[in-house]
Computed example of a mutant assay.
Amino acid sequence: MIRIDGLKKNYGNYTALENIDLELLNGEFIAILGPSGCGKTTLLRLLAGFMKPTEGTISIDDEIAASSSKLVPPEKRNISMVFQSFALWPHMTVEEHIRFPLKHHRFGKTNAKEEQEKRVSEALEMVGLSHLKDRYPAELSGGQKQRVALARAIVPKPSLLLMDEPLSALDAELRMEMRREIGAIHRKMGTTIIYVTHDQGEALAMADRIVVMNHGKIEQIGTPESIYNTPQSVFVSTFVGKGNLIKGEWVNEDKFIPADFPAVSWTDIGIAKEIKAQNLYPVRPEQWKLGEVDQNQMTGIVQFAQFQGNEIHYSIQSGEEMINVYASVFEKRFLPGDSVSLKIYTGTAQKAVLVGSR
């Protein structure tokens, strides 16, 4: 188990991390999600042992690994790391890369030739590179290079695997494929994984829990479902899922009246107090139901309609708000210039209901 208490990191007068508290269970897949400059890579570097925190502690299995006065270096921690840049050596073959940790990793080192052969073979098979074991990095595609880096990281069987935006250099199709590979490896090995990313799709698809960060602080920690469906701050509601923040007024704890539509009211569907305090109502693009103009509903004018295969993405001007709506291609189609009403779906996918008007 890894425990982070009151972690802070300063670079001169700049505070990169402030008051970070986090507990990671053995075997958990944790995604650290946030925009560039939010502190997620700094947190990863502290967990790796590359530097000391300014304040606070990092404990691994109840022993302090880092504090302002103590630092257990990376080579004395049972960890591996996968970098965005692959970090492969041009003079070594795929097989030599994967064998390297078995010769030099403090915790994964083994001198038994048969054991080395077995573990290298298992790692190659896990990442689907058995047929390319004699190739050099210059002879590999981007996706193959990332598989080599991944196999090299997992072959010593670390207790903690750190991944710093490992898929950002790959194209969209390869990213989807590698997500499946990493997920399968995690299920098979049970290693604790901390995965840094700015891609919400990766975090939602792969993680057991997500840590959303902004300006060096943790905004919210939770399962992908709780982060997406019940954001606890304005930042989380817009960064994860690109939600619409509708302005208006909370008349009381459970009734919201959108601006410019006094005849409309929406009920509370579990909206956080912080968001309510700013008189906002978050709505995901897929929560909207478009229909013909109804004066008892919020209305707007379609500005753009983009075909996206199984969805139509609409941009709708409603008063001063530009609202994003994702609608199924099987629903009634609207064109730019059409006037529409906007209702809100709530509930589960199996049983959706509409937030009614008063």
Rank of each mutant, 00 (worst) to 15 (best):
H186S: 09
V155A: 02
K188A: 15
P158G: 01
R180K: 14
A151N: 00
L170H: 02
E181P: 03
I182W: 13
V148R: 11
D164A: 01
P166D: 06
K188G: 10
R179Q: 14
K157P: 01
G183Q: 14
H186T: 11
K145Q: 14
A153D: 03
S168D: 00
R175T: 12
E173V: 09
A153V: 05
L161H: 02
E181H: 09
A151H: 09
V155N: 02
S159P: 00
K157W: 06
E181Y: 06
R175D: 10
E177H: 15
R147H: 02
A149Y: 09
L160T: 08
I185S: 06
L150Q: 08
A149I: 11
K188Y: 13
L174D: 08
R152T: 07
A149K: 02
K188S: 15
Q146L: 06
A172P: 01
P158F: 03
A151V: 07
V155C: 02
A149E: 04
R147A: 02
A149C: 04
A151I: 00
P156I: 05
S168C: 04
E165N: 01
R175V: 10
L174K: 11
L162F: 04
R187W: 07
P156K: 03
M189Q: 14
A172H: 09
R179M: 10
M189N: 12
R187G: 10
S159V: 10
V155P: 00
A151Y: 08
A172Y: 04
A149D: 05
M176D: 13
M178W: 13
A149F: 06
L170R: 04
A153R: 00
I182H: 07
K157M: 05
L161N: 08
V148N: 10
A172E: 06
L170P: 00
L150H: 06
A184E: 14
K145D: 09
P166A: 08
Q146G: 01
G183P: 04
K157D: 07
I182C: 12
P158S: 00
P158W: 06
L167R: 07
R147P: 05
L174T: 14
L167G: 05
G183L: 09
E181C: 13
R147M: 06
A151D: 01
A151L: 03
R187Y: 09
S159T: 14
I182Y: 10
V148H: 11
R147N: 01
P156E: 02
M163H: 03
L162T: 14
L160D: 07
L170D: 01
L167Y: 01
I185F: 08
E177N: 13
L161V: 12
L161I: 11
P166R: 04
I185Y: 13
R175L: 07
G183Y: 09
L170C: 03
R152K: 07
M176H: 13
S159Q: 14
D164R: 05
R180L: 15
K157L: 07
A184R: 15
E173C: 04
E165Q: 00
H186P: 03
R180T: 15
R179S: 05
R187I: 11
L161M: 09
R179G: 05
A169C: 01
R179P: 00
R175S: 05
L162D: 10
G183A: 11
M189V: 13
L150G: 01
S168Q: 03
A169W: 04
R175A: 03
